[in-house]
Structure formats: C-alpha cells, structure tokens
C-alpha cells in the first residue's frame, strides 16, 4: 500500500514542480519529468524482479524452451525503454521524434522475434500432411 502512496506522491510533487518551472525555464520541466519517471521506475523494480522470477519458474516447470521466454522478457524490456523515451518526447511536443523512436524499437522487436516465427512455421509445416 505504501508503494502506491510513494508513487502517487512523487508524481504529484513533480507535476507541481513542472508547472512552476515551465513558465520560466521550459527545458527544466523536461528534466524533472525524466527524473521522476526514473524514480518511480526504481520503486517498481523489485515487483518486476519477482514477476520475472515467477515467469521463469513457471517456464521451467512446464518444460517450455527457456530461450523463448528470454526473448519475450527482452522484448518487454525494449518496449519499456522505448515507451519511456516516446512519452517524454511527446510531452516535449516532439511527436515526430517519438515516431522515429517507435519505428526503431519496433524494428528491433520484430527482428528479435524472427527465430520464434521460424520455429512456429516449422512446427506447422511438420503438421501438414504432405
């Protein structure tokens, strides 16, 4: 429960600071939003580590190939980082920059998913009665 209070508190405090500083120095508002995002993320980290460990445990028990889970977790990491940058760029009003970051991160994620798609196709072809 106190995690939520911390996160909401930091969010509101940084919101107020941003509004104060935006009139005089707009660039400092962006710095404050970046730093508050990072601080909130560090609060969410220990929860994330538990979730990832649980996923790995389930994956080992169910006998699924561990490589695919690793790729999935990597994809979520890339998606998180890209989304972090994209939302900050959009806040600053640079939506074209945000789209470029989005394009790049999508290309990386898709290129990472190629082995999975390859194996999927192989499995389907094996099932096909040729």
């Amino acid at each position: 429960m106190d995690e939520v209070i911390k996160i909401v508190g930091i969010g509101l405090i940084s919101l107020i600071l941003i509004i104060i500083i935006k009139q005089y120095r707009p660039e400092f508002a962006i710095y404050i939003s970046i730093i508050s995002g990072i601080i909130i993320f560090f609060y969410a980290i220990d929860k994330l580590t538990n979730i990832i460990d649980l996923l790995k445990q389930i994956c080992n028990q169910s006998g699924v190939n561990n490589k695919y889970l690793g790729i999935l977790i990597k994809m979520t990491g890339i998606a998180f980082l890209a989304e972090f940058a994209i939302s900050i760029c959009k806040d600053a009003g640079e939506s074209s920059l945000a789209n470029k970051i989005e394009l790049g991160s999508k290309a990386i994620v898709i290129s990472m998913s190629i082995p999975i798609i390859h194996n999927l196709l192989e499995i389907i072809l094996n099932l096909m009665p040729t």
Binding site: I10, I13, S14, L17, I20, I21, Y24, R25, F28, Y31, I32, I35, S36, I38, I39, F42, Y43
Partner: peptide, 22 residues
C-alpha cells in the same frame, strides 16, 4: 533512488530562472 534529487533539480531550475531575470 532518492526524491531529493527531484528537489535539487527544481531548485537549480528556479535559481537559474531568477538569476536570469536579475
């Protein structure tokens, strides 16, 4: 990760704004 970093940056921002005006 501590919150005073947030206040440090806000303080520098306000200080710079005031100094700039002065």
């Amino acid at each position: 990760m501590n919150v005073d970093l947030l206040f440090k940056i806000a303080a520098v921002g306000i200080l710079v704004a005031v100094l700039h005006q002065v």
